[in-house]
C-alpha cells in the first residue's frame, strides 16, 4: 500500500464486490425529494425512509439538506429481521471550524463506539465508521451536531431476496450433498466413486461460497457504513483592493475561486473520473 493511501488507522472490512442483479436499491439524496411511501415494488413499499436530518440550506454551498420524517430506528430493526434485510450506506460531507477537524473526527469515532460501532478507516479529512443499524439514525444525528452538513446521502440496499435465494440454494445443495454421500457409501465401482468424490468436492465449494455470502450479508445488515468527509471552514479575511495609493482602500470579501494560469497542457483537461471509468 502506498504511503498516500495508508490511513493512520485502518480496520478494513472484507467486502464482496459483486452486486447481485436482484438487489433493489433505494437512494435518498439530499438534493432530491423523498420518495413516496408507495414504492414500485413490494419491497420498496415496505421500506421505511432512511434516516434524515433537519432541513437547512447552506449559504456557502449550492447543495441543500432536506428533511424527511422517517423512522430509521424501526427500519433498522426491520433490517435485522430475516424477512427484511437492508444494508445502509451513508455519506456525509460537512464543514467544521478551521482547527477543529481532528477533534471532530475523534468525536465522530466516539459517537460510533458509544453506539456499539467501530472505526473503519480514518483519513486526514474524513472517517468511515461502522455502526449497528439500529443506532444509525442516532449516530447520524449526533454527527450532524458537530458541524454544518453540506451534502448527505443515504443508500438503503434491499438484500432480502438475495439472502432468501441463497438460503434456498443452501438447503438444496445440502440435500444434494447428503444424497451424494449416501451414493458414495453404497458405491462399489471405482469410476463411480471418483465421479461422486469430484461432485461432492464441487458442491462443498459451492456451499462454502453461499454460506460466505450469507455471512457477509448478515454482517452488513447488522452494521451500517457511514463515511464522513470534513472540510475546514475558511476564515473570512477582508481584502483591501486598489492599494498602491496607501490607505483608503475598499474592503471586499475574499473570492473563493482561484485564478488559474492557462497552460498548454491539454492532458490537464483529460484528468478525471469520466474519462477514466467510461472511455
Amino acid at each position: 500500500m502506498s504511503p498516500a493511501a495508508t490511513p493512520s488507522v485502518m480496520a478494513q472490512d472484507s467486502v464482496a464486490s459483486a452486486a447481485p442483479e436482484a438487489q433493489a436499491e433505494m437512494s435518498v439524496q439530499s438534493t432530491s425529494p423523498p420518495p413516496s411511501s408507495g414504492g414500485s415494488s413490494a419491497k420498496t413499499t415496505n421500506m421505511a425512509m432512511p434516516p434524515a436530518r433537519t432541513a437547512s440550506t447552506s449559504s456557502t454551498s449550492a447543495k441543500t439538506n432536506t428533511s424527511a420524517t422517517t423512522d430509521a430506528g424501526k427500519k433498522a430493526e426491520n433490517a435485522q429481521s430475516p424477512d427484511f434485510l437492508i444494508m445502509y450506506n451513508g455519506d456525509v460531507s460537512m464543514m467544521v471550524d478551521d482547527g477543529k477537524v481532528s477533534s471532530t473526527l475523534d468525536k465522530i469515532i466516539d459517537a460510533s463506539e458509544s453506539a456499539g460501532g467501530h472505526l473503519g478507516t480514518r483519513r486526514d479529512l474524513g472517517v468511515t465508521i461502522r455502526v449497528p443499524s439500529v443506532h444509525f439514525r442516532e449516530v447520524l444525528s449526533k454527527i450532524g451536531e458537530l458541524g454544518e452538513i453540506t451534502h448527505q446521502s443515504i443508500t438503503a440496499e434491499d438484500v432480502s431476496e438475495e439472502y432468501h435465494d441463497a438460503e434456498v440454494r443452501l438447503v438444496n445443495m445440502k440435500a444434494a450433498q447428503k444424497r451424494l454421500q449416501e451414493f458414495l457409501a453404497k458405491s462399489a465401482n471405482m469410476n463411480d466413486m471418483l465421479t461422486l468424490e469430484r461432485e461432492l468436492e464441487r458442491i462443498s465449494m459451492d456451499i462454502d461460497r453461499v454460506e460466505g455470502r450469507m455471512r457477509f450479508l448478515k454482517e452488513h445488515v447488522a452494521f451500517s457504513t457511514l463515511t464522513v468527509a470534513l472540510t475546514a471552514r475558511p476564515k473570512s479575511q477582508p481584502v483591501v483592493a486598489g492599494g498602491g495609493g496607501g490607505g483608503g482602500g475598499v474592503v471586499k470579501p475574499v473570492t473563493s475561486s482561484p485564478r488559474i494560469m492557462h497552460l498548454h497542457a491539454g492532458w490537464l483537461d483529460n484528468l478525471g473520473v469520466d474519462k477514466l471509468v467510461n472511455n
Binding site: M1, S2, A4, A5, T6, Q12, D13, S14, V15, S17, N89, D91, G120, T121, T128, T225, T227, W267, L271, G272, V273, L276, V277
Partner: peptide, 23 residues
C-alpha cells in the same frame, strides 16, 4: 500520471489493492 477512480464504497473496500497497483 497514475489515476484511479471508482464508486466510493467499492473503492474504499479495495483501497489496499488500488494503492498497490498505483504504486
Amino acid at each position: 500520471l497514475v489515476e484511479a477512480a471508482g464508486d466510493a464504497t467499492d473503492f474504499d473496500a479495495n483501497l489496499p489493492k488500488v494503492a498497490a497497483a498505483m504504486r
